[in-house]
Design a protein around this nucleic acid. Structure first.
Lengths: 326, 326
DNA sequence: CTGAAAGCGCTTACAG
DNA sequence: CTGAAAGCGCTTACAG
């Protein structure tokens, strides 16, 4: 049998109102009464029902997070940043993944309307941006962790993709490289365009080939360039998976890295330390993105008004052996 | 203004009871009435409040998951397996991480008592097993995803750690290796003892050194063995991070992999494909562990009685170039 | 087939 | 400083 506030009230010989007051530490309770109530609470092991509290207060002290498949290499970092921040504020975190496509999304939208949570954090809402924008318009607090360069009509957290691309180019130039091959992600991603623009600002003549964010894509990109007899001395890969594929293709073609060809990736996944040679890459602060987005959302729930202008976190070039300093 | 069941009832000129009945698709409602109510629901965009439903029904249709830091390399897989299964059943998934130590745990236990969820899934409950065992005794349905070999007093899902160790040894023997170095994880992990026992059953004389589950540990393990002049022709690492460190140390010492020394890891993390050479490893079905644990918990919530005997999923040797077949 | 009423476990004006 | 009562939005016997 569940212990309720009524049990505590009876045992302490006060009203439920008074118990509720000491629970919520209101000032206007006699110190003696409060002490007695607290004793009873401890003795009975009473804990308020979060559901009942939520119903009475009209708020759930829970936020939701909608994510792409959790197997994305950097999702763990983002999620951990979110979880830490949300937990520290005493909120619960409800997780939804879009792993099952349309079905997931409709299940999710049902939950939203059910007011199972007070606010929403989301990453990479493929085919979801319209739905979410509508929810936001109807009053649901939303913050996007924008790794795709979406520039949505609500608050978001992003990184300096353009500057990241530029920093890769500057590093390559500074170390004497002049003929890059750029292997991009899909062009319809805003982040891909930004990374490319930043790079081309520094090295306008770069050879560019569009790829996907996979190792296979990196391998094919290099193989094709070599087969066409292109004269390259470095590769800028739009993420670390592409870079890993490029490393492999270069090795198989007998090109030494970094002696013949330097390679720079993007993201700084854990695996970037384990490739041969270890990968120079543009680090994205995924954990801080999660923390920042969560902090924004909690501020919004506490009453702050948020700007729709994205909060932009800096990328950082991490130099390892695949493209060493001079 | 929120649309409630009362609004629907008024608009459809029926009682709240009737609306509730069509909501829960009970048979005993006149077809015409039901149709009319459904129209009103659609017209008003009514969605039941999950909090109110939960309070009235005494169940939240939510399960919680308590995890170690999400940056553990295989947590994404486990979590995805759990999320898919839980979502498909129409349940919500509340995530708690033990990232903040004792504070996390106490926050978490508060949530438990608050009945914010109906059941609990957990991974690797460092310093948590006692608390959780107590909760289970008090009636909270719990399923452990046991990657540590805990053998708890409640239902759990594990893998064949002992057979996994044996399969690594058999593969090495079959490919002509006779002098292994085993670099283990911490000995107080049940899984470490099991992997080691399975290996030693096949190769009793193996050289064994205790390590941690880190790359550094793998590197040191190999460096020490070589410095001591040990004559090794293969390494069995207790996870893939250790194996990655071993690969690096071997290369730096001028030993060729696999020609001079073969290397076998454990887990089959995504990075196992990206090492040089790609890693032969004992694959643990982390996603299936998540799915299986979630399925067990949901069955329990549906009224099934669960056995405390662990459900054991098979490991599988994945052969790549670091320890090729003949 | 349908509805009035009680109940789930809290919080919050309101009154004293 | 304290309590009775209404209300949050549902479900569920119970009665018809």
């Amino acid at each position: 049998m569940r212990v309720t506030i009524a049990d505590v009230a009876r045992e302490a010989a006060v009203s439920k109102t008074t118990v509720s007051r000491v629970l919520n530490t209101r000032a206007d309770v006699d110190a003696g009464t409060a002490a007695r109530v607290r004793e009873v609470i401890a003795a009975l092991g009473y804990v308020p029902s979060s559901g009942a509290v939520g119903l009475a207060r009209g708020t759930s002290r829970t936020v939701a997070m909608l994510t792409p498949p959790l197997t994305w290499p950097w999702m763990g970092e983002v999620l951990q940043g979110v979880a830490d921040t949300v937990e520290a504020a005493g909120y619960g975190l409800l997780l939804y993944t879009c792993n099952r496509g349309a079905e997931s999304v409709s299940h999710f939208t049902g939950q939203v309307s059910a007011r199972a949570f007070d606010g929403l954090l989301l990453v990479e809402p493929e085919n979801t941006l319209d739905t979410v924008t509508a929810m936001h318009r109807r009053g649901l607090p939303v913050v996007l962790i924008d790794d795709r360069g979406h520039h949505p009509a609500f608050p978001s957290v992003a990184t300096t993709n353009r500057e990241g691309g530029a920093s890769a180019a500057r590093h390559l130039l500074a170390t004497g490289r002049t003929s890059p091959l750029v292997i991009t992600g899909p062009r319809d991603f805003g982040c891909v365009r930004d990374r490319l623009d930043g790079f081309l600002d520094q090295i306008p003549g770069a050879l560019v080939t569009e790829g996907e964010f996979t190792e296979t894509s990196g391998r094919h990109g290099v193989e094709r360039a070599l087969a066409e007899g292109r004269d390259i001395d470095c590769v800028f890969a739009h993420n670390d998976l592409i870079a890993a594929g490029a490393l492999r293709a270069l090795r198989e073609a007998g090109r030494r890295v970094p002696d013949d060809v330097a390679v720079v990736g993007f993201d700084d996944l854990p695996m970037a330390r384990h490739t041969e040679p270890p990968l120079t890459t543009v680090r994205q602060p995924m954990r801080r993105m999660g923390e920042t987005a969560a902090r924004l959302l909690l501020a919004r729930l506490a009453g702050d008004v948020l700007s729709d202008a994205p909060v932009v976190l800096p990328t950082e070039l991490v130099v390892r052996r695949s493209a060493p300093a001079l």
